[in-house]
Simulated scan of single mutants.
Amino acid sequence: MAMLSAAGGGLLAVSFSSTPLLQRHLTPQEAAVFGKGGSLTNSNLQLPELTRPVNILVMGMSVLTADVGESPRSRNLNYEAQVNSFDGLSDVMMLLRFDPETKKINILSIPRDTRIEMDGYGQVKINATNVNGGPAGSARAVSNLLGGVQIDRYLRVNVGGVQKLVDALGGVTVYVPKDMKYQDDTQHLYINLKKGRQHLNGDQTLQLLRFRHDQDGDIGRISRQQMVMRALMEQSLNPATVTRFPQILNVIQSNLDTNLSVEELVALLGFSVKIDRSKVQMLTLPGDSNGNGRHDVSYWLPNYSGIQKLMARYFAQENQQ
């Protein structure tokens, strides 16, 4: 508790209610998408705590110069480089539920190729909702897909932020399930990992997370994302790391965009540190791949019956569709 208090103290140098990591201006209509459930925390205690279940949409962004209308030549480059932006496709989408009533964390991965209908755009892949509607548009789309579930907050982190985070935590030890080799000179994306248990730095972790050039495609990549996420929680969510949280946050701050307040960040951190790791459940959106569908577009086709059952069991969600 003393270490958590120290971390909280470091964060609370700014206002409890402020959102220092909010990098996108949300219109009142956009902000209202996330405000339907009311307050998340109790600030009358020494440290804030969650007062109800909280659903947070997490998006991992891979944004290239072309995605923001830049020419590589403007940066004296001859390839499409990653940029520190949040305006591209969401390469990763997860809905996280922190439940103080059951003392569980449920993490639902949503394949980026999931086919949905988006108002004004028709049939699209769900990863395009961030481009078309920002975080609020993505939240609406995910909520509709999942039977009307309330999404309380969002967090977007780009490729640079993931690499900085892993390095700030001292790396992560995982089992690489197979040899992975891939080269894309147009993006300067180079993947070269060997099978086996090993300690990865930030760049190597990104290679593991981004590889999808095998028969498992995006579903295999989701499995590896969940493996890395669980390993980071098991290896880094501890009192020693908690005391360094303000410094770690400072390192990755420019690569994060979230409407979580300082108070809410402290409450989520405290909950996550105390929870039994066996109470963390990793899930994937029920569905199936269509291979190459209409116009040779590959989709993940949602299984709505399976989604309804999953949401009822893990997100206390009654079907509202």
Results as ranks from 00 to 15, higher is better:
D87L: 13
Y304C: 02
K279S: 13
N127S: 13
F98G: 01
V262F: 07
V131Q: 11
H213L: 10
A66Y: 12
A141L: 06
G291V: 07
Q235P: 01
I116S: 01
F16H: 08
L268W: 05
K104Y: 02
L45F: 03
D257R: 08
Q247G: 09
E234N: 13
E30S: 13
T114C: 08
Y299G: 00
E101D: 14
L285H: 02
L40M: 15
V68P: 05
I307M: 09
Q29Y: 03
L269T: 05
D119R: 08
I191T: 02
D67M: 08
T129K: 04
W300K: 05
P135G: 07
K194F: 09
T41L: 10
P28E: 13
D87S: 15
P100C: 09
D119E: 14
G306N: 08
M180R: 05
Q23P: 00
G69D: 09
G171T: 00
Q82F: 11
Q163M: 01
K194L: 12
G69C: 09
N292E: 13
A240R: 12
Q317I: 03
L89V: 00
I219C: 05
G8R: 02
I126L: 15
L268I: 09
T205F: 00
T114Q: 06
V68I: 15
V68F: 09
V68C: 10
V159D: 03
N44S: 15
S39E: 14
Y182I: 06
H199L: 01
P100V: 10
R115P: 00
R97E: 12
N106R: 10
Q225M: 07
L11I: 06
V14Q: 15
Q225V: 00
R212Q: 11
F98D: 02
Q225Y: 06
L4G: 12
D214M: 10
R294P: 01
S305Y: 07
D185V: 12
L95H: 01
R73A: 14
M59H: 06
G35P: 04
A231L: 07
V273W: 09
T241W: 04
Q150S: 12
E80H: 14
S18C: 09
R313E: 15
R156L: 15
D167N: 04
I116Y: 03
A231I: 03
Q187D: 05
R277S: 13
K279V: 01
A32V: 08
E70Y: 08
R156N: 13
L301T: 03
L165Q: 01
N259S: 07
R230T: 10
N303T: 04
Q204Y: 01
I110S: 06
D257C: 07
Q29L: 11
